[in-house]
Design a binder for these strands. Structure first.
Lengths: 358, 358
DNA sequence: CTGAAAGCGCTTACAG
DNA sequence: CTGAAAGCGCTTACAG
């Protein structure tokens, strides 16, 4: 007899499980209900641990679930419930050691709130950031943690109005009012450069990232402030901004280290720049002092140890994610956007304490 | 007049957007259809760029989309279409520099196939791995790339039967037949240890991860093979396996470096162990040779440079993800599980070429 | 070229 | 304690 009890709703000629078919052919609550001889709602109650099911009924449903290998389709559930229990994280590059701990911290907070994390790398491309962010919104993530690549986020306004929680980290949002969690880039850089000045340097180079990146601009501002505080006029040839690829950085470093009045110290604007400059300095004939923004692994074991302005990537991620869930878990009263700034820490290891050598 | 044209289906007293409500109150295709004065299917056609809509109709629909700020709910779309265009990646710890590039590589392949990536850290806990994997299956990811924490993956069999693509990376699947992408852990370790032997060492220590982890066991096997090939009997006190936390590793290293017949060289079983051992050796009175499994940043700048057996984390991720989409994009013919092994590379930088010092 | 009806797999709001 | 009906926001399969 065609159309058995358990699969009455499925034609016998339904294609077998294979790539391209609907989820193989997974059993649904309807299948479980048919097999257990109960209603759909009863299965739902058992699956979700809701009360009001007799032990005997429950047992029959559980047996059917086991026999069929049923697993609730959370994707369907979500459509009905409204919340997807997932958040998105858009960062520059998952492979960058700075973002690993940040990402992990966001994940831990999400996990504590029962949410999954969807990760995406913008590759520092504003168009790709936007594409990713909107794709995640289309998937209806509950919230988005964004490390901005672009400087105009008005494209997210409709999403925010629609109720998507949003927090920007590491760099502020562009042209919209939103929660932001930053390191004290200005203060950290100023302290790092002041540290070099305190050790007798006056010709200090600054090699940073592209100036359109907020952190790069802020750190440069810190450099200028420290120099100005010390009454040292800055020669523009001491400053080099641009991509952080090794070739560009190498050339920049070699240039400011040569000529009649070379710099005696360098302040590097982020971890990738620091690594390349360390390589250049290791082959340089005379000692040059170095302070780098961002900590790097093994910095303490180099000769000399690398002095850095360290920021706490995990704390940035954690703070941002907590802020996100604050928006999400609120009672509906609007949470006013805030700007949270985390302190940096000067870690002295030797390279920043070298005296100037002419 | 209550119930205007555009929102005829929404009661006037519908709660305003706030946390907890359904997606704020996003417009749906139905809203767009009402506003444009067309049918639902026409909106669907325009949104999905399907043919068969007159320019004039299309314009009206586009205007309604703009005015309402409509964005298609991909989560609903997915329910109907079957494929979610998302894959999951379960790894040990996103913050570990080894997994960053691997994860990024998986993301790039996913992106090329139009899929999003959901990341989860197992924290080396089999229970957490299972919880995560099943949660992702409940979300109906199309496929799963798993770096196993546990050694029994039979719990995934129903999911595989249901059509979820699955590839294991870095470590093999436990007790199920599935695609696996590995580095040549045995061969790499054997070569690394043979390299130390070739430089005159006989008392060589091995400090590795917990033996239940496949990579740790394989690398130890490589160590033993190299020693046996050279006819060197291994003293068990030269071998230390366990957690990779700095304290444990430090004690293990100090122990085998002390006593009447200390080791003259150490082979370290992964990047975290290597870093700690470098710290120990930097304070040790006499030079000790070192070869580490996994490359580490700045290894070339240390004194001496650190010789390593490098594996290509990005290639592992890329290969695994490509294999996953091979399963997914297939024509339905079953793809037989394969075991793919990627070569490692011995990178000589100095520490592995030090002669034995008694 | 266009649209009404049915359905994806669940939950909600009710009614018994 | 239990279940039939309606609905979440889309797409599919048809019919005009």
């Amino acid at each position: 007899m065609p159309g058995t009890a358990s699969r009455a709703d499925r034609p016998a000629d339904r294609p077998a499980a294979h790539a391209g078919s609907r989820y193989g052919n997974r059993p649904t609550m309807k299948d479980v209900a048919a097999r257990a001889g109960v209603g759909l709602k009863t299965v739902s109650r058992v699956v979700n641990g809701e009360p009001g099911v007799t032990p005997d009924t429950e047992r029959r449903v559980q047996e059917a679930i086991q026999a069929l290998g049923f697993r609730r389709n959370d994707s369907a559930r979500v459509l009905r419930k409204g919340r997807t229990a997932s958040i998105g994280l858009i960062l520059e590059d998952l492979a960058d050691p700075f973002y690993g701990p940040l990402s992990r911290a966001v994940e831990e907070v999400a996990r504590a709130h029962g949410a999954l994390l969807i990760n995406g790398s913008s590759a520092e491309d504003p168009a790709r950031e936007q594409e990713l962010a909107l794709a995640l919104c289309a998937r209806r993530v509950d919230g988005l943690v964004v490390i901005p690549a672009g400087d105009d986020h008005r494209y997210l306004e409709p999403e925010i109005r629609a109720g998507v929680a949003m927090v920007f980290v590491d760099r502020p949002a562009g042209r919209i009012d939103a929660d932001v969690v930053l390191s004290d880039n200005f203060g950290g850089a100023r302290d790092g450069v002041a540290h070099l000045i305190a050790h007798g340097h006056r010709r200090i180079g600054f090699i940073g990232d592209m100036p359109r990146i907020h952190t790069a601009a802020e750190r440069l501002r810190g450099y200028r402030a420290a120099m100005e505080d010390a009454g040292i006029p800055v020669a523009e040839k001491w400053i080099s901004l641009g991509a952080t690829d090794p070739e560009r950085v190498r050339r920049a470093a070699e240039e400011m280290l040569s000529g009649p009045e070379p710099v005696t110290a360098v302040f590097t604007g982020n971890n990738r720049v620091t690594v390349t400059v360390i390589r250049v300095l290791s082959r340089h004939p005379r000692p040059v002092a170095l302070v780098g923004f961002d900590d790097i692994e093994l910095a303490d074991l180099l000769q000399p140890g690398v002095t850095v302005v360290a920021q706490d990537a995990a704390a940035l991620g954690r703070t941002a994610a907590e802020r996100l869930f604050l928006q999400l878990d609120g009672d509906g009263t609007h949470v006013a956007p805030e700007r949270i700034e985390l302190p940096t820490r000067l870690v002295m290891r030797g390279s920043g304490e070298l005296p100037p050598v002419e």
